[in-house]
Write a protein that binds this DNA or RNA. Sequence first.
DNA 1: CTGAAAGCGCTAACAG
DNA 2: CTGTTAGCGCTTTCAG
Lengths: 323, 323
Amino acid sequence: MSKRATSADVARAAGVSRTTVSFVLNNRPDQTIPDDTRRRVLDAARRLDYRPYASARTLAAGRSSVVLLAVPALPLGSNLGRFIEVFAGELSGYGLTLVTHLSGAQSRPLPDVCAALNASAVVALMPVDHSEVDALRRAGADVVLSQFSRGIDGPMGRVGRAQAEHLIARGHQSLGYAMSVHSETRPIAEARLSGVIDACAEAQLNPPVVVDVDLEVADAARAVAHWREQGVTGVCAINDETAIAVLAGLREHGLAAPKDLAIIGVDDIPTARLTDPPLTTVTFDVVKAARRRAQAVAAALAGEEVAFSGGFDSRLLIQRSST
Amino acid sequence: MSKRATSADVARAAGVSRTTVSFVLNNRPDQTIPDDTRRRVLDAARRLDYRPYASARTLAAGRSSVVLLAVPALPLGSNLGRFIEVFAGELSGYGLTLVTHLSGAQSRPLPDVCAALNASAVVALMPVDHSEVDALRRAGADVVLSQFSRGIDGPMGRVGRAQAEHLIARGHQSLGYAMSVHSETRPIAEARLSGVIDACAEAQLNPPVVVDVDLEVADAARAVAHWREQGVTGVCAINDETAIAVLAGLREHGLAAPKDLAIIGVDDIPTARLTDPPLTTVTFDVVKAARRRAQAVAAALAGEEVAFSGGFDSRLLIQRSST
DNA sequence: CTGAAAGCGCTAACAG
DNA sequence: CTGTTAGCGCTTTCAG
């Protein structure tokens, strides 16, 4: 509670005015400060362990440096974790601070969180409809980006495509889709599924046989039986967890991938390489994706009306032996 | 950019002063406002979609409502996800907003993030040493809580204990410990390990044979061989991922749990029940833990010098067939 | 019970 | 190049 140092303290210690302090600490390019003064200020600041009060700065400047990342609760593959970390790093290169909010069904409305933080941007890893975007803007967000704003052809659709195309390239003519029963992931699931449907259509195949599969051996076994009856030979799963469930379902029947049924996941979770057989999966270049998004956010914040149209993320196919 | 409504707007619309608006919106107990006035204010606020500017409020009041949760990057089991969500929910019951920051090796120093957010509290899911706590306080945090502040006997040590006690109760006399090579999780790993060491000592057993195991089949197989040579019959893993790796290592040797080696994980990740055999694991009551911590944070923020001494979290043992 | 007035710490014109 | 002067929107004594 021992009063934090303020810019006035620094000014006093350095023998200059608060304005000057503000200028040098913010590195204002339009102001030219003598090296000597600058050093004095910087010195004083360090000595006093000075930290600008974010709220005062935000209030005065009218813009904050916090970016809010909304992630849907659940299966945070470790890749997502890395993405967030890298994303935060990239943003901090632009002077922005990233924090994450898990948006589950029962959690606080995003606009509330946004307002409570005075976030200047929110990027959502889930669909955000128009009214939500509006609400966020009214809550103070200057920019709102979503993975989904561009619909089916966005990044999410592409992972479905990548899965299906892989299977098709390997000769499968009749695909299945392992859907998540989890309502949280439903929108993501649907976006991905539509990618699969597209790919099937392009290859003149029937649409995939969609089955909900819970993360239980018995349930997965049932799904496997159903696919086999339908003549399905390759299935795309909404995520690695579900793919692993399908693998367990196969085991239950005494069957094995890829011989009896090929299966491909998405995310490359740590345990994907530990299954029997190791799981083929689709993932993405975390660093590249993070970099692009950070840039988009920074640009948008700078006023450039950047439409972050999805579709440029490179998809990585990790071929292991389940396909 | 269409100017957000301010408290002055509300005051004008309601025909009262800003002070009054502030009083009713903050529900100040020491002020008594006529129901009629109150309603008028509330109404106007709703009509104008008024949201207090967090930064202005923070600046004026001297305290912010944001709580920062620092989580170490990596294996965010889905349980952790749920914990965070529930924790956020509980906190919001106290008028606090929780956001999460992934603290990886290369991410921004926590105090910086704390300052950028003007967080009034930070709770860390990893160890925080004294100097860090200091830095955080200087960065504006009024309260800092860590899972680890109480050392070995904290929640982390208890999970190790729970694992070991389970194995010992089932007759194992010589235990192994599957450590993570991941440097991020090292401190956690060590805290947990010390719990199993304790349990072994109490049961008059030799300390566990500790082996680093990477998330690779080959590496895990090597570890398994080593344990078998040493006569180990049951191993505790730092987390479910690692436990699953051990399972894969066993498979590689044509062995199986629990017959040839019993194995117990921690977290109960979604895929834990999908392995062969399904994984026994230790987890915790997410809701209870979240509630306790939220309460501790709120109390601390209210000035009550609550030492959040660890050790009260109930541990859930999920007995499946790997032990 | 309500309002006027004084800041919280910082930035940003605008003068010197 | 540096300092003076206003606020940003809100809370909070302190009078009425």
